[in-house]
């Protein structure tokens, strides 16, 4: 293991930050076959962890296991101190996630999607919020289109807009850069940094695009048979070197 890698949890969450998500000795995999073992970290509010690694190293598997989308093999994951359970209202209120799947309400237009999600979370001034997200993600011209009428990149933007329009404490993005153009990636990186910088939310971002998380990531979780947590400065210095 390189000497800049560190395992353990103590040094990740600063003393002033509240622990939002804690992962302890988690193993992720399929059936009985483990892909990543001993994943341990704590994520505080206002922090971002980027999950990186080559194809097949288990990045998305880690994220999916943390969010209960697949069965864990070992370990514990806690959200605000309680075992993560994606069926509870508290979890659904706190976690906003975008995975690589086109999950859209049938027959609803892009604007209607955003409106209902915003209203579902009791957002004030829904119309203005919808307008802002449509504008931010470049979807104004497609507000009245149904998602299946859009290109894959535009559908990706709709999913991201739906994730950002609602309040959340934990934002989980699985390779959000997929199918986005360079300009949108840059805007998304900036939005991610601003969102977490407020200190009211945290992010877990699975990515191959290190530029996307360069300014936002506090730690990098390098996926693999033995996943390791690396502070951003150390990881980025290692990349430059």
């Amino acid at each position: 293991m390189p000497d800049w890698c560190s395992e353990g949890v103590e040094n990740i969450v600063s003393e002033t930050s509240q622990v939002l998500l804690s992962c302890n000795n988690m193993s992720a995999g399929y059936g009985r076959a483990s892909i990543c073992d001993d994943i341990t970290f704590q994520l505080g509010l206002g922090q971002t962890i980027a999950i990186v690694g080559p194809n097949g190293s288990g990045k998305s598997t880690i994220a999916r296991t943390i969010l209960c989308r697949q069965a864990p093999l070992a370990g514990t994951v806690r959200l605000r101190g309680a075992a993560v359970d994606d069926r509870t209202a508290a979890y659904r209120s706190a976690v906003s996630a975008v995975f690589d799947e086109d999950a859209f309400f049938p027959s609803l237009t892009v604007a209607e999607h955003l409106e209902l999600i915003a209203r579902g979370h009791g957002m004030p001034d829904v119309a203005a919020n919808v307008e802002y997200e449509l504008s931010f993600f470049g979807l104004e011209k497609h507000a009245r289109s149904q998602p299946h009428e859009l290109s894959s990149g535009q559908r990706r933007r709709v999913l991201l807009a739906a994730a950002f329009i609602r309040p959340f404490e934990l934002l989980v993005l699985d390779e959000p850069e997929q199918r986005l153009d360079a300009e949108m990636r840059s805007k998304l990186a900036d939005r991610l940094r601003r969102t977490v910088a407020g200190g009211a939310a945290s992010a877990l971002v699975v990515t191959h695009d290190l530029e996307l998380v360069k300014d936002a990531a506090d730690y990098y979780l390098v996926a693999g048979a033995r996943a390791s947590m690396v502070p951003a400065e150390v990881f980025q210095a290692g990349q430059i070197a």
């Binding site: 994606d86 509870t88 659904r92 976690v95 999600i117």
Partner: peptide
């Protein structure tokens, strides 16, 4: 049926799965 096919849809709302 779309909610059964795509469980992520239900997670968009702060409601428990039971409710």
């Amino acid at each position: 049926i779309p909610f059964a096919d795509q469980p992520a849809l239900e997670s968009c709302f702060p409601l428990s799965a039971q409710k």
